[in-house]
Every structure is written in C-alpha cells, then in structure tokens.
Simulated scan of single mutants.
Amino acid sequence: MSQTFCEELYNIKQQDSPDLPGFCSVKQPWIRPTNLQESNIMTPIFQIPNASVPKGLEVQYIYVGIGYGLEQNLISPNTIAGVLNVAYDVNDPADLQNAYDPTDPEIIKIFDEELGIWYFPSLLSKVALVDGNENEMMTLVSAIYMADQLLNFPSLTEQTQETTKNPGDPMTNFYQQGNLFIHCHDGGSRSVTITALYIYYKFFVGQYTFQEVYQEVICARYLEATNHVPTQGICENAYEVLSRYKELFPKPVCN
C-alpha cells in the first residue's frame, strides 16, 4: 500500500537529514525569486503574478520564515508590509519595535510628505495555529483569507481618499503596501502549509496539484527551516481543508 504524502513527510522528519528529499528534484511549478535577500529567517518563495498585484505596486512577493528576529532593519529593506503570524506560541510586536532606538517602545512610523500622514511600514496580523492536526478547519481558512487581505491592502492614497469620503469615521492608522511575510515558530511547518494552501487556491487550481505546490514551498524552506518539513498533523489538516472547504476560497485567477 502506498503511503500518503503526509506519512512520507513524517518519515523524512524522522530521518532528520539535511539532504533535500527526492521530490525537490521534480519540475518546479514556478520560478522562485532569486533577486531578493534570503536568510534562515526569511526566504522569498513566490512572486505574485502581475495581473494580481494591487494598484500602486509594480511587483509583490511572499516570504516565509521564522517568528524571531523580525526587527525593522530586516523587514523594511524587503518592503514587508504585511506580517502574518500563524503560530499560537509566537508573539511578534516586540520584535517590530523601533530598532533604531531601543528606549522607544513604539513601532516606528514613517512620514509621507506628499500625503501629509504618518504611516506604519508593516501591518501585523495573527491567526494562531498549533503544529498538529488539532486545528479547527476554519482557522486555516481564516489564515488563507488573511494572507489574501494583506496582499491586497489599498495604497496610502486610497486609504486617505477613503478617510475623506467618511469624515465622521476617519482612519486612525495608515499602512503601506508591499510584500507579505508569513511566519511560524521555525518557518518550516505551519507557515509553509498556509503559504502552499494560499498559493494553490489563488493561482494554481486546475494547473497543478496541491501536493506539487506544497512540495515546492517545502523545498524552498527545507535547508533553512529547523524542522525541515511540516509535521504530519498540520499536513493532515491541509488535506482536510482541501476536501471540505473548496467553495470558500477566492476564485483562482487561473480560472
């Protein structure tokens, strides 16, 4: 009897080998970004297709990594506008405090002279997942929708225009557009799984299988992630989402 893919991942994890698994040699569903900074903390995984990049941006990327060391001097050079934390056991606001003045407890803001507003360079969001199969399926669905929302945040100009339209309920905080960083504790399990689910449903339904997309994200983070591959439990959760909630996701652009 052939093993399920989640069981295969479990066996790879038990081997604890730094060598790339065999499925990493198969044809890639997409070309990974190679012109961007890469580290054990943050790996560029995917470039958003031009047709899906929101107005105000020319290019946009998804990064995946770990939940520690997220200082602004790492986030800002990579234009990380959205930070999605999918680990219940990691809290990140303290890491994003003003790295240039440790005595300042505030997360740094930037002034836009043209619009005359102060804005946050990053918007933090959290959907807490455990690294096993105990998650409620709608929690994974929420994480996927949150990734889509962060990637499609309106431009600063659009945000100020919305405030002008609603003077009785003005926006109190503004945020820049940019790239998305999805992280968990070690950057190889929950964050990899949510990234694969999002990329699959948003861009590759009907073109590649979920397993092919999942393998590509796993391979991109394999050498940098402490745990190398997703746990069998979170993998099982992903496949449960596949079988139960197809109708809930954004319509894939490829369709």
Rank of each mutant, 00 (worst) to 15 (best):
L129E: 14
K55P: 06
L129R: 07
V86P: 04
Y88D: 12
P167I: 03
Y201S: 08
E236K: 07
N91R: 07
F23N: 09
L57V: 06
Y208H: 14
F5W: 14
Q15F: 02
S189F: 01
Y214S: 04
Q97F: 00
Y145G: 13
E224Q: 15
P29H: 10
A87W: 05
Y239L: 00
G132A: 09
R244M: 13
K251I: 10
L156E: 12
P154A: 07
K246G: 11
I182A: 03
N255F: 11
P170F: 04
K13P: 00
I108P: 09
A87P: 04
F249R: 08
P167S: 10
E136Q: 10
C6D: 05
T139A: 12
N135I: 03
I194H: 05
S25M: 13
A143F: 04
N35T: 13
D112S: 03
E247C: 00
F23V: 00
L123F: 12
P154I: 01
M138W: 06
E113Y: 03
H228V: 01
L124Y: 15
T4P: 09
Y119R: 12
I234S: 05
S39C: 01
S17R: 13
N135Q: 05
N166E: 06
G206S: 07
Y214E: 01
K109I: 01
K27I: 11
N73I: 09
S2L: 00
Y214V: 03
H228S: 09
N133Q: 09
F204Q: 07
Q15T: 11
T231D: 14
N255A: 10
E71Q: 15
M138I: 08
S25H: 14
N237S: 15
E106A: 06
V86M: 07
Y10L: 06
I144M: 12
Q60A: 01
P102K: 06
T139F: 01
K126C: 14
S76M: 12
L84A: 04
N11T: 09
G233K: 11
V83K: 05
V130E: 15
R190Q: 04
N40I: 00
N135D: 09
D131Y: 06
Q28A: 11
D131Q: 07
V90G: 01
P54S: 02
S142I: 02
Q97N: 02
D112A: 01
V90F: 03
Y88L: 05
N11K: 13
C235K: 10
P167G: 00
M42T: 03
C254H: 11
V217C: 03
